[in-house]
Design a protein around this nucleic acid. Sequence first.
DNA 1: GACATGTTCAACCATTTGGTTGACAACGAA
DNA 2: TTCGTTGTCAACCAAATGGTTGAACATGTC
Lengths: 122, 122
Amino acid sequence: MADPLSEVFAALADPTRRDIVARLSMADATVGELAAPYDVSVQAISKQLKVLEAAGLVTKTADAQRRSVHLEAEVFDLMTKWIERYRRDAEQRYRRLDSVLAEMNWLDPSEQAPLKRERKTR
Amino acid sequence: MADPLSEVFAALADPTRRDIVARLSMADATVGELAAPYDVSVQAISKQLKVLEAAGLVTKTADAQRRSVHLEAEVFDLMTKWIERYRRDAEQRYRRLDSVLAEMNWLDPSEQAPLKRERKTR
DNA sequence: GACATGTTCAACCATTTGGTTGACAACGAA
DNA sequence: TTCGTTGTCAACCAAATGGTTGAACATGTC
């Protein structure tokens, strides 16, 4: 998969994994504890944890034969930064459009405001 | 896939789809315009757009035989709300832990505090 | 009507994903 | 040492994903 952002998004695109993250936000837990509520094998949850771990969302610290899993909250920043950036742009675009339309009505209805050129691809 | 949150996360877990969203945040575009920069068939992009559409991230308006695609920014809220909720909880937990450790040092410095978990640098 | 353009649909293929079971490694307790 | 617990690894399987090509559909243009 390679790129970090894709891995984080993909990791959270599964209800079980999101639930695990939700529970880890309250307290660290062992693999067994995490697996208990679900109706699947421990191995399945172990795999899910590997996905979360690869995405940098959780880390495991081996103590004895059990592993304590805990949430790494900073990775969330990666996502929120991406999201906020484009949401802001999109909303700005709507506001611009709104103000253009408002201006057209406001100033001189006879003068047609030039339409914005469409951007090419970048 | 069913649940909306999973669909939105999954939709953004692909670099091409994220790029499409990024470009749509600047201006609406037709399917053909969106497909142009990528080295895959138009059909492939049409499929990707269906994923984004199913997730509620974009909508298409048919005018003539072309479809204008545009970004639906509100769906982002679903994600940010989820993320913010658990990030907040997780960070609060760290602050609590920090204060507990600080208190331990404060009251009895001779007692060695357990190691703090290392924070990732970034 | 005939044609080119823009988009989708259908069938197919390779890879990834999320699950299974069975074996094994590491450790604490008996 | 032997045993039960905790977790991972490996091999396998079904379903989903992201791509392909070929055909069809809708709509403006000649």
